[in-house]
């Protein structure tokens, strides 16, 4: 004979377990980790805890991507300048962009009116951008990167969602903070390149005297 409802009760013990856990684990967490700032769940922890946004945030991984930003060499709070910006207006980001939301005007030398390797205007339409990260992935100059800032709620869109060249620029210091690993790798790579360059230059010098 089968008793109806037995399995149902068995299932309810699981619900009860969750209920109890929410107090035992939840309380412990509340006292131990109050206001940790950035948090991350470990798979070995039981259940999933509630992130108390905005008091604490889920720490995003380094590769996390929202909107692209342009990088210039400098400190936080500095104003970007043509000399410090990394973008060369080569246009690869605009060409690889799937919804075609990047607009670049190549700069001109004010004296000769010849095109220079700098962008004079740079727009990203956040209303079209799909956050895919291709621009950052294929940029040969490490000039465009994906930002982590997701807090972008705004009461209008016609002005604030068009990011122009001034709004897009962030410093390398800021980038190094959000992407420490990628920044480290970049430094190593640049140093290797510089060393190689110096070595070839030195070799050329060595060969030069006899001639």
């Amino acid at each position: 004979m089968r008793i109806y409802g037995l399995e149902l009760l068995r299932g309810l013990t699981i619900t009860l377990g969750h209920f109890i856990n929410s107090y035992t684990i939840g309380f412990r967490r509340t006292f131990r980790n109050r206001m940790r700032g950035q948090v991350r769940q470990h798979p070995a922890d039981k259940g999933v805890f509630t992130v108390q946004y905005p008091d604490e945030r889920l720490r995003v991984p380094e590769r996390f991507r929202v909107l692209p930003v342009l990088i210039f060499d400098g400190k936080k709070g500095e104003q970007w300048k043509q000399e410090t910006e990394r973008c060369t207006a080569c246009g690869i980001c605009a060409k690889v962009c799937p919804p075609q939301c990047i607009w670049i005007v190549q700069g001109k030398d004010p004296a000769t009116a010849k095109p220079v390797a700098k962008a004079s205007e740079f727009f990203i339409d956040a209303d079209v951008c799909m956050n895919c990260g291709f621009c950052a992935e294929y940029c040969p100059f490490d000039a465009i990167k994906m930002d982590h800032n997701f807090e972008l709620g705004a009461e209008e869109r016609h002005v604030s969602h068009i990011f122009d060249i001034n709004k897009l620029h962030v410093s390398t210091e800021y980038y190094a903070e959000t992407h420490p690993k990628a920044w480290g790798e970049e430094q190593v790579r640049r140093k290797a390149e510089a060393d190689k360059k110096a070595a070839t230059a030195a070799a050329a010098k060595k060969e030069a005297p006899p001639a």
Binding site: Y53, D127, N131, F150, E151, G153, A154, E155, H161
Partner: peptide, 29 residues
């Protein structure tokens, strides 16, 4: 854009905005 038809109070950029971004928009509202 839905604002062609409805009056929108808060816009969130992102594709898709993460849950925390939605919460931020809720706070903006």
């Amino acid at each position: 854009g839905i604002d062609k038809f409805l009056p929108v109070d808060v816009y969130i950029a992102g594709c898709p905005p993460t849950p925390q971004a939605l919460l931020h928009a809720l706070m903006t509202l």
